[in-house]
């Protein structure tokens, strides 16, 4: 068999269109390549090292849905944003929702992040970084006072766009968090739900009963088993690790991506063209990708080009001529 012929065979196996005879033929080829059944250190390197590398890689790709890690807020993220809130909840999904959930208006469909963190743009202009394995939905509930509501299972950063007279509410189990223009964190790890405020003011209620109105560097800890809450002082200036991991951009505008990159890399980004700034795209960023790698990727996707001045930290993105 020739190379191209073999590739056609493997393509068919891969996409599921191979028939029995082709499956059998492929297996025979595969088996004929099995010339060694032991680890050959000369050719393959150290077995133990390789095994550890592979296990670490597997760990990375499945670690996130494991018990929720303590979230920490990186103030770099908060810099120019109206409000950011961070929510982490254990794997219970709205057992206790007091309000009827309106699913028919301006909804953002259930969104599940799988192996990577995902950057999601909400219709109101807010941005969410949904951690791997988490699920959320968004609805805008019309009325005298329109309410923006997110239901979350798992972990997420919320970068909430401040809109006058439009509360932003995050519902998780029995605990509801009202955004009042602020930066804070909610963590429900095991039997406790912890809300920590970095900036501004946050109202936390449980089944409609107020647990606390928190100011910066204050934390409320709600113990589910004992149904008791306490308020503590805490240093909220901590760095976030999970949200700096791999990240999927789903239908994000170039302008929004630019805002996001400004904070992550501490640079200024100008998008020269309005149409370009509104253009949507989808891509995936990896944990250790550099700014220039990401910019190249974004430009590729949007038929644009960029310049980066290292000394002034200024990035300019414009359409390719």
């Amino acid at each position: 068999m020739q190379k191209e012929e073999f590739f056609q065979l493997t393509d068919k196996i891969n996409d599921g269109s191979a028939n029995e005879a082709e499956l059998e033929l492929y297996i025979k080829y595969f088996n004929s390549f099995q010339t060694s059944s032991v680890w050959d250190e000369k050719e393959m390197g150290d077995e133990q090292t390789r095994g550890q590398m592979l296990l670490a890689a597997i760990d990375r790709s499945i670690a996130a849905p494991l018990p929720v890690k303590r979230l920490k807020l990186n103030l770099k993220w908060v810099a120019s944003i109206a409000a950011i809130l961070v929510v982490a909840v254990a794997a219970f999904w709205f057992i206790n929702v007091n309000h009827p959930v309106v699913d028919n208006v301006a909804n953002y469909a259930n969104q599940t992040s799988t192996n990577t963190n995902e950057l999601i743009q909400l219709p109101d202009g807010s941005t969410v970084i949904l951690s791997a394995g988490s699920t959320m939905s968004y609805s805008s509930i019309p009325g005298k006072i329109p309410v923006r509501e997110v239901k979350l299972k798992g972990q997420a950063f919320f970068d909430v766009k401040h809109i006058d007279q439009q509360p932003f509410i995050v519902r998780t189990e029995s605990v509801t968090t009202h955004v009042l223009g602020t930066a804070f964190e909610v963590n429900a790890n095991g039997g406790k739900i912890i809300v920590t405020v970095a900036r501004g003011k946050v109202g936390v209620t449980k089944d409609g009963k107020q647990l606390g109105m928190l100011t910066p560097n204050k934390q409320v800890i709600y113990d589910k088993a004992r149904d008791k809450s306490t308020i503590h002082d805490i240093n909220a200036k901590k760095t976030s690790s999970w949200s700096n991991g791999d990240l999927v951009f789903t239908n994000i505008t170039v302008g929004h991506a630019a805002n996001f990159l400004q904070q992550r890399f501490n640079v200024n980004i100008i998008v020269k063209d309005e149409a370009l700034a509104k253009q949507q795209f989808t891509t995936k960023l990896f944990e250790n990708q550099s700014l220039t790698e990401i910019l190249t990727l974004i430009c590729d996707f949007n038929n644009a080009e960029y310049t980066f001045n290292e000394s002034t930290k200024l990035v300019t993105i414009k359409p390719k001529n």
């Binding site: 595969f30 390549f33 099995q34 060694s36 059944s37 680890w39 393959m44 077995e47 095994g51 296990l55």
Partner: peptide, 12 residues
């Protein structure tokens, strides 16, 4: 099982 799997893929 990882080692046998890895060897099988590496052979190929």
């Amino acid at each position: 099982h990882w080692s046998a799997m890895y060897i099988a893929s590496f052979n190929m």
